[in-house]
Design a protein around this nucleic acid. Structure first.
Length: 298
DNA sequence: CCTTGTGTTCTCCG
DNA sequence: CCGGAGAACACAAG
C-alpha cells in the first residue's frame, strides 16, 4: 500500500532516471487505466519529454514538456492506489519502484518478464528505457490534465503535506476543533493532511500515545502537539528508510524499503507491545484494520 | 471472508 | 427542507 514515503521514494528514483527523457511509444493494455480518451492520451505523451516529477500526497504528477507551438502545460497524473507499481527497466540495469503483492509477483516483475499479466500501460523512451504501470487490482490510474484541472484536483482534494510548514499545531488545532469523527478517520482524510494511509496513521497514533477511536475534537493541546511531532518523525524516518516494504517494495538498486522492521504496531496483530509488553489490539475502525496498544495509548 | 485509497452515494442531524 | 458532516458503499482481485 504505497503511502507518502513510498510514493516519494518512487518520485525521487524516477526523477533521477527519466526527467529529460523523450517518450517514443505509449501502449495502453487495459483501457480503463488511462482516464482520458486513448487517442488523446497517446498523442499528449508521444514525442514529448518529461520535464519534472512532483508529488502531492500519494499522487504523482509528471510534467510534460511543451513542444514548439504548444501553449498549454499538461501533466500526467499517476495514482497507484493499493497495488499499483511503476517499474522502470533500462538496458543496463533494472530500476524498480512500487509495491508487489507477494514474493511471486515480485519475482515475475523483476525476473525479466515484463510486461506481465498485471501490466496496464507501458511508456517507452528514446534511450530504450521502459516504464511499466502494473496494477493487480485495477484501482490505480493514469490521467493527463491541464494546469487548471491539476490545480483544481490539488485544491479540492489535498490538505497540507506532513513535512511542510503548512501542517502545524495551529492548523491541526483549528481543524480538529469540534470534529465528531474519530482521530483515525480524520488522519486518513486526504483533505485534512495529504499522504497518510493506514500504516502511518496507526504508527503515528502509537507514537503520540493516542487511541485511534478518540473523537478528533477531544484532543487536548498537548496531545495535538504530540501527534504533530509523531507524524513528522514517522514520515521523515520512513522516507529516509525508503518506505515500508510490507509486501515487496524495492528501490532502484533492488533493495527493499527498510521501514517495515521499524513498525511498532501495524501488522503486528496481538504481538506484545514493544513498550509495555502487553498484547496489542487489532480491531476495525473507519473501515480499516486498526492496530494499537490499549495500555500505552490513551 | 479478508486486505485498502478514494470517489460516490446514502443517511442523519441541527 | 437544506446543507453539511460522516458513515457506508463501490470498485477490484487474490
Amino acid at each position: 500500500m504505497p503511502e507518502l514515503p513510498e510514493v516519494e521514494t518512487i518520485r525521487r528514483d524516477l526523477a533521477e532516471s527519466i526527467v529529460g527523457s523523450e517518450i517514443v511509444a505509449v501502449k495502453i493494455l487495459f483501457l480503463k487505466t488511462a482516464k482520458n480518451d486513448a487517442a488523446f492520451f497517446v498523442k499528449a505523451l508521444i514525442n514529448h519529454k518529461i520535464e519534472d516529477i512532483g508529488r502531492t500526497g500519494k499522487l504523482l504528477s509528471l510534467k510534460i514538456k511543451q513542444k514548439k507551438g504548444e501553449t498549454e502545460n499538461l501533466y500526467l497524473l499517476v495514482h497507484l492506489k493499493m497495488t499499483g507499481q511503476l517499474i522502470l527497466t533500462s538496458k543496463s540495469k533494472k530500476i524498480v519502484g512500487g509495491h508487489s503483492l507477494n514474493e511471486h509477483s515480485f519475482e515475475s516483475s523483476v525476473g525479466g518478464e515484463l510486461p506481465n499479466r498485471h501490466t496496464r500501460a507501458i511508456i517507452e523512451f528514446k534511450n530504450g528505457d521502459k516504464l511499466f504501470f502494473n496494477d493487480l487490482r485495477k484501482f490505480g490510474y493514469l490521467k493527463i490534465v491541464d494546469e487548471l484541472e491539476f490545480k483544481k484536483i490539488i485544491v479540492a482534494g489535498y490538505g497540507p503535506e506532513p513535512l511542510s510548514p503548512n501542517l502545524s499545531v495551529k492548523y491541526l488545532t483549528a481543524k480538529l476543533k469540534n470534529k465528531k469523527k474519530n482521530i483515525k478517520a480524520f488522519l486518513l482524510d486526504q483533505k485534512m493532511i495529504a499522504g497518510l494511509g493506514n500504516i502511518y496513521v496507526d504508527e503515528s497514533l502509537f507514537l503520540a500515545k493516542i487511541k485511534p477511536m478518540r473523537l478528533a475534537g477531544s484532543l487536548k493541546l498537548i496531545e495535538i502537539k504530540s501527534l504533530y511531532l509523531a507524524i513528522n518523525k514517522i514520515i521523515k524516518k520512513a522516507i529516509a528508510n525508503r518506505g515500508t516494504t510490507f509486501n515487496n517494495y524495492v528501490d532502484s538498486s533492488g533493495r527493499k524499503g527498510n521501514f517495515s522492521r521499524l513498525l511498532s504496531v501495524y501488522g503486528r496483530g496481538k504481538l506484545p507491545c514493544l513498550k509495555c509488553k502487553k498484547a496489542l489490539v487489532k480491531t476495525k475502525l473507519a473501515g480499516r484494520g486498526t492496530h494499537y496498544c490499549d495500555y500505552c495509548q490513551k
